[in-house]
Design a protein around this nucleic acid. Structure first.
Lengths: 254, 254
DNA sequence: GATAGTGTTTAGCATTGTCGAACGGCGGTA
DNA sequence: TACCGCCGTTCGACAATGCTAAACACTATC
């Protein structure tokens, strides 16, 4: 077990703490939350501020996340290979399906949205790139959990919060669902996360046939489903997209 | 001169290095680029990887930026007060003006785009939130340089690259432009950064009457300008928006 | 199969970051 | 106005911490 650099771990913990708390935090809050001496916390914060990862409100003296994080986070998207390959295909999927398309990868105990194509109409929508989705209740999360062992382990460890009356939190029931997902090659989310919203998702594989992410379609349950089941043409288009992206990543079609 | 934490500075330098280089970088590249021993660079990278700020390609062993940066960067947007206040007004400006709207803040030697409203038509556009714009040639950059002393200092220090035949790089000429901008209260960019693209921008002030950012309109020069001058109705709408956001931030209207 | 490159691990030293206490400023309250 | 409590910041000394250099596996290349 190699040991990691202490000051970096503490700095990372600070950034996560600042990301978690809604508003700005004071130095004393941060120091006590992490169990550090004020001077120690201050040294780390001063460096983070100097590097642009943290900003300090001149009036209150409180700290918040800094602009450099946004710049680097955007650069992460530019470098992301899966996202680059998926850009072409997801646009077509959104247009043909008439619904919003999401691309997600496993991150910590959830799904990180790395790409989001708006539903092709003139309604006002907010971009959800960078947002997290739970593993146990969303189509993206379930399909990752079904095909990625790491994601599965995270799903088991995570606390599975119920969001609607249809959310499945029992582990045995989830495992049965995952078996079904593995068998049929796609996952569904019928109002298990948001009321009135349904979703479909299919896995994306790399050249080693390892699951590296998932594509999903999300929309109003009335449009995505018919007679309680997801519309077959949506499933077909989604799986075609997933296969196309996988092929672009070097996955051999058997 | 307080001293900053060495390992943190080095870690930040690594992240910036990874953000700069197009593709993934190897450990030896990183170590030599920063003048560090391989083991030192490895220890920092291992910690960054463990914290999710850096990812390592299992095949090549090379490093790239990690997903946690995207998550934290998005959170930065959520906390950003200026952006939150501007959200309401920029939508209206884009609709009434018929052009794309940008919100920018000073970051390092450039303008960081923290909000971007698409031009209200059905054309395909890519979101530019998180991207950087130069100070000396864009409307957003010039208006910040005119009203924010820090931005002005950065503009003087920065190397002013010419992008088109109309780009002004001479410092004296820029200073005269800034005087004009301060006098009229808005800045223009007539094909100084991108061929065929013109932009307008106006400053946003906080409760201390300090410039904290800028709003801008960007579009094809044929639509934004008429007879070589920006359309007056666009200028009026833009300045109204800037004033509204400033008022929301607590700036007294004199 | 030798070579040159990679990323990784090890051991010891001294640099480096941590700690506790004291400092100056601000905003309350008596 | 003077007090008090809390804030963020600075100081100085100690030793734990992270750095350096060299050796280690490993893979690709020729």
């Amino acid at each position: 077990m190699a040991k990691n650099i202490q000051s970096l771990e503490r700095a990372a913990a600070m950034l996560r703490l600042l990301a978690g708390g809604e508003r700005r935090l004071g130095l004393s809050d941060i120091a006590s939350a992490l169990g550090l001496a004020k001077a120690t916390a201050h040294g780390i914060l001063r460096t983070l501020q100097h590097e642009g990862f943290v900003e300090q409100d001149p009036d209150s003296g409180r700290y918040q996340l800094g602009a450099e994080l946004l710049r680097l986070g955007t650069t992460y998207l530019d470098v992301h290979e899966l996202r680059a390959r998926a850009l072409v295909w997801t646009d077509d999927l959104a247009r043909s399906g008439g619904e919003a398309v999401y691309l997600g990868v496993l991150h910590l105990q959830g799904v990180l949205v790395v790409h989001h194509v708006f539903r092709p109409d003139d309604s006002r929508q907010v971009l959800e790139v960078g947002a997290m989705q739970p593993l146990h209740s969303t189509a993206l999360g379930k399909v990752l959990s079904a095909f990625d062992p790491v994601a599965h382990a995270e799903l088991v460890d995570a606390k599975r919060e119920p969001f609607t009356a249809r959310t499945v939190t029992d582990l045995d029931a989830i495992e049965r669902d995952l078996d079904l997902i593995r068998a049929q090659g796609y996952a569904t989310d019928a109002e298990e996360t948001w009321e009135g919203v349904a979703a479909l998702a299919a896995p994306i594989f790399d050249r080693h046939r390892m699951s590296v992410g998932a594509v999903g379609i999300t929309g109003a349950v009335e449009r995505v489903c018919r007679d309680g089941e997801p519309r077959p043409e949506l499933i077909a288009a989604l799986r075609d997209t997933a296969r196309s992206v996988s092929r672009d990543l070097g996955a051999k079609p058997f």
